[in-house]
Design a protein around this nucleic acid. Structure first.
Length: 194
DNA sequence: AATTTGCCCAACCGCAGACTC
DNA sequence: GGAGTCTGCGGTTGGGCAAAT
C-alpha cells in the first residue's frame, strides 16, 4: 500500500513533524542566509531537512526571521490589534504587517487566547458602546468570520482608504504605532456607515 | 504527591491565488 | 489557455506546562 503524499508532495512517512530542534533551526538559517527565503521546497532539500517546504517557511517566518519580537505585547500594541481587527477582521497577516516584529501567528494566538475573551467578558457586562463591542457587532464571531467579512468590506471598497501591504512586516516601516493609532481613531468614523 | 483541568502557543492542514512552463 | 507547482493565509490541533483539586 503506497503512502499517500501530503500537500508538499512528500510521502507522509518520510516527513519530520513536530517541534523543531536547534540543529534543524541552524541548518535552515544557514541555507536561507545563502539562498534567501524563497523556494522553500528547495531550501528544505538543501538544508537536508526531512521537512516540507511549508514547515520550513513557517518556522522561518514565526521564529527564525530577524527582528522578531516575542511575547510581552504592550498595551499600545494590544489597542492597535483591537482597532485593526475592527477594520480588517481576521486578516492576521495584514494586522501583523502594522506591528513591526510581530507575526500573524502570534497575533492570531494572542487574539484567540486573550482579546476574544476580553471582548466577550466586556460584552457580558453590558453596553455596546466601545469599539471592542462594535467589533463583535460587525463580525459576530471572530473565529468564523475570517476572509468573508473582510472580503465583503473589500468588495465594498472599504479598504481603499487603508492601503495595507505586507512589505514592511519586517519592521522597516517608518510608521510607528502611535501614528497608526491616531490614524485609526480618525478612520473609525466610517464605521458609522455600516 | 498524584491527578485533572485549562491555557498557551508552535506547528499542521486545507484552501485559494499567484506563478511557471 | 490549462495544468502543475509554489506561496501565503486563516483555522485548527495537540503537546507542554502551570494551577487547581
Amino acid at each position: 500500500m503506497p503512502v499517500a503524499p501530503n500537500s508538499s508532495g512528500l510521502p507522509k512517512r518520510e516527513v519530520n513533524r513536530g517541534a523543531w530542534t536547534t540543529q534543524e533551526d541552524r541548518k535552515l538559517a544557514q541555507v536561507i542566509e545563502v539562498h534567501g527565503p524563497r523556494r522553500w521546497k528547495a531550501v528544505a532539500a538543501k538544508a537536508g531537512l526531512s521537512r516540507c517546504g511549508k514547515s520550513c517557511r513557517l518556522r522561518w517566518l514565526n521564529y527564525l526571521r530577524p527582528n522578531i519580537k516575542r511575547g510581552d505585547i504592550s498595551v499600545q500594541e494590544e489597542d492597535l490589534i483591537l482597532r485593526l481587527h475592527k477594520l480588517l477582521g481576521n486578516r492576521w497577516s495584514l494586522i501583523a504587517g502594522r506591528l513591526p516584529g510581530r507575526t500573524d501567528n502570534e497575533i492570531k494566538n494572542y487574539w484567540n487566547s486573550h482579546l476574544s475573551k476580553k471582548i466577550k467578558h466586556k460584552q457580558h457586562r453590558g453596553g455596546r458602546s466601545t469599539h471592542m463591542q462594535q467589533d463583535s457587532a460587525l463580525c459576530t464571531d471572530g473565529a468564523t468570520m475570517g476572509r468573508g467579512c473582510a472580503a465583503q468590506r473589500e468588495a465594498n471598497g472599504m479598504t481603499n482608504c487603508v492601503n495595507f501591504t505586507q512589505d514592511d512586516s519586517t519592521g522597516k516601516d517608518p510608521m510607528n504605532l502611535e501614528w497608526m493609532s491616531r490614524f485609526l481613531e480618525m478612520d473609525e468614523s466610517w464605521l458609522d456607515f455600516l
